[in-house]
Design a binder for these strands. Structure first.
Lengths: 239, 239
DNA sequence: ACCTGAACACCGTTCAAGT
DNA sequence: ACCTGAACACCGTTCAAGT
């Protein structure tokens, strides 16, 4: 892995796989994933479309590599932390990275089935921490899947893009204001709280309306749930 | 809402918003979201591309309507069930619907920020059940967000499409087989179990490798976590 | 090795024109 | 009201040709 950025005689950054990935990330974060195109980033870099294909296989693997770049930015917490503190820290770090590039967020939920050896370190770290917590065998794998599935899933859904369409937003806005309190009494009861940020009800993406409280609650809930499962698995041990 | 399907004199199904949506869903489920196109479904229906636009606003709202159609298929469990049983049943129903149309799954995580009054019933039902469980105020909204965020997020991530690219699969397969047990001891320990289904590690989409056990564990974990939060909120009450 | 220039087979969407 | 036919401005990707 080369860390130096090559430059040509004019001082321009030389075209590079790494450079293309960075440009792609910046472009997506500014204009949204739905407006990303190979030709677009070729324009951005100031080169013919075909030139991109010298450095990059195709569109989907470029996007996968952008996703990989994002994961690289996630810092692994100190291994010596208590397991629940560690999980919470990892979750916070992961979400922070995606909230720095919110419009690229869907990439991770969409394209990252898995991706190269890069991720083995992350997986191993999570497994290690959960092992220290006391999980073993299938229970360990389950706990791992719960953590990663809920974390990545939650943030991915949080960052789901809103249709920018003004007409659409207006329509949802009206439906919300004219909500029938008789038919939906529980919603009516919690109207203001829900309006400050709730899945499905919201009319904005997390770019404009981050669901901080919801995320905090989700992390807390999952950790409590894991603790509870742990106690059932090890009925002999005390606290 | 019309339930009858109109037919023309030749007995062909008349072009309809509803018919288009159904065709779109079928097409996506067969050929994948990445291969969906307006022109493609026009071909499918046997009509000029522009004809679609008479019945449907544009591509993204069509996809949103497909997503809405999917949610309509989710059955709400009986309101009289105990809250934890109810939540588990809802989660199972939701996942079952998406696993019937796995390749359309990403639509829900991607496009459904929110969508018309359709969803108010679902939201109100969840809030009602959690209210009966004992959640109030912000705690109620938090619990709702945790349930919906983890559920939709988890399944969305589970159904993330794998790049069908054979080269890619082979490369991941090799990395996995040649995994360095020294560097990644926890992974090596749980190698077979992880191979049977784990996020990030997997080389297949949930279409071929459903993460049943992981989902079961996630639902269980979230419910246990909510129960634990409930006990902390109501320290006066007993059991 | 790396890029140009042109080409191919596609898109989504619009619009006049038909019936 | 509903569809045709053609057009416009885009795509992703390939390939010969240049340097």
């Amino acid at each position: 892995v080369t860390r130096t950025t090559r430059k040509d005689s004019a001082g321009n950054v030389a075209l590079d796989r790494e450079v293309i990935i960075r440009h792609a990330l910046a472009y997506i974060n500014e204009h949204g994933l739905e407006n990303f195109s190979m030709r677009g980033i070729a324009r951005e870099v100031g080169v013919y479309p075909a030139a991109i294909y010298w450095h990059v296989d195709d569109r989907t693997t470029l996007l996968t590599e952008v996703a990989g770049h994002l994961v690289e930015l996630v810092e692994l917490p100190d291994r010596h932390l208590p397991w629940d503190v560690w999980i919470r820290a990892l979750a916070t770090n992961y979400r922070q990275v995606l909230h720095r590039y919110p419009r690229a967020g869907p990439l991770l939920t969409l394209n990252v089935i898995s991706n190269s050896e890069l991720y083995f370190g992350l997986t191993d770290a999570i497994l290690d921490v959960l092992h220290r917590a006391g999980f073993r065998g299938q229970g360990l794998v389950d706990a791992y899947n719960v953590v990663i599935g809920c974390l990545v899933g939650f943030v991915g859904f949080e960052l789901a893009p809103a249709p920018l369409d003004e007409k659409w937003v207006k329509a949802r806005e009206r439906e919300w204001e004219e909500l029938d309190g008789q038919r939906y009494p529980r919603i009516a009861d919690a109207y203001e709280l829900l309006d400050r940020g709730a899945f499905v009800i919201r009319r904005q993406s997390a770019v404009d309306l981050p669901l901080d409280k919801a995320f905090e609650a989700a992390v807390d809930t999952v950790i409590r749930g894991l603790r509870s499962r742990l106690q059932d698995t090890l009925p002999t041990r005390e606290r």
